[in-house]
Amino acid sequence: MLLWINGPFGGGKTQTAHEIQRRLPGSVICDPEHAGFGLHRMLPPALRGDFQDLVSWRRGVVEVLDLALSKHDGVVIAPMTVTDSGYFTETVGRLREMGHDIRHFALLAERETVLERLRGRGFGHLLQYVAGKDAPLRRESWAVQQLDHCLERLREPEFAEHLWTDHSTVPKTADRIAVLAGLTLLPNGEGALRNRLRQVRVELKHIRFD
């Protein structure tokens, strides 16, 4: 089974994916974003647009996820924002055509909720001091520019199943996905502080400066 976790940038995809992976033995995260960043780094900065526009990214994601789903004995989790219906068909749709069990979830929230989450990412002042005043805002600024478009597109029926997360914690969202997918997660068993510290570690691992 593939759990494709969609949603706007800053909507909680990566945190939810890591929460599921932590509590679902045998599961793995295969992040399509990594392939996109690799393709970006192969190009001169002036030629770097949206890596999803590259046919090589779309085909490569299908090839790699097909391999993981065919050879790995466990659930595969792909946290990735896809709002273009054609690209969605070429990736999620193609994997379904190949016979894989694909469960797609779009994590949605009100605009202000996502903006608040984006403001909480990147450890603002600390990273400004370490990497320069513009460093922590680059990805967040781009995410804000894309936010309205993402929220509008992901509300469409083709991007179901929709999960509203305004009043949900990451563990609770993971629990909801598991129930809908017919999976059983290990109990969370940790308090809010430990959950937050773990989420901070995930955020640190995913900070980029390019």
Rank of each mutant, 00 (worst) to 15 (best):
L3G: 01
N6M: 02
N6L: 04
G11Y: 02
G12K: 04
G12R: 05
G12C: 10
K13F: 05
Q15K: 09
T16I: 01
A17V: 07
A17L: 10
R22Q: 11
L24D: 11
P25H: 04
P25Y: 02
I29F: 14
G38D: 07
H40Q: 11
R41M: 10
M42E: 13
P45N: 04
R48G: 02
Q52N: 14
V55W: 15
W57P: 08
G60K: 05
V62Q: 08
V64R: 14
L65F: 03
L69N: 02
H72S: 00
D73W: 13
G74S: 06
A78Q: 10
P79T: 09
P79Y: 01
P79Q: 08
M80I: 03
T81A: 11
V82P: 04
T83E: 04
S85N: 03
G86Q: 04
G86L: 11
F88R: 00
T91F: 00
V92I: 14
V92E: 10
G93K: 04
G93Y: 07
L95W: 12
E97G: 10
G99R: 00
D101K: 07
R103H: 15
F105H: 09
A106W: 01
V114T: 13
V114W: 09
L115P: 02
E116T: 12
R117H: 11
R119P: 00
G120D: 08
R121G: 13
H125M: 08
L127T: 10
Q128M: 10
G132D: 11
K133T: 07
P136Y: 00
L137C: 03
R139T: 06
R139Y: 14
R139K: 12
R139Q: 11
E140P: 00
A143F: 08
H149W: 12
C150D: 15
R153Y: 05
R155A: 09
P157C: 13
E158V: 11
E161M: 01
W164M: 15
W164A: 15
T165L: 08
S168F: 15
S168I: 02
P171L: 05
T173H: 15
A174L: 10
A174I: 10
D175S: 12
I177L: 06
A181C: 07
G182T: 08
G182R: 04
L183H: 05
L185S: 05
L185C: 07
L186Q: 15
P187R: 00
E190G: 03
E190T: 09
G191W: 02
G191M: 09
G191A: 06
A192E: 15
L193W: 07
R194G: 00
R198L: 06
R198G: 01
R198H: 14
R201W: 04
E203S: 12
K205R: 11
K205V: 05
K205S: 11
H206L: 15
I207S: 03
R208Q: 14
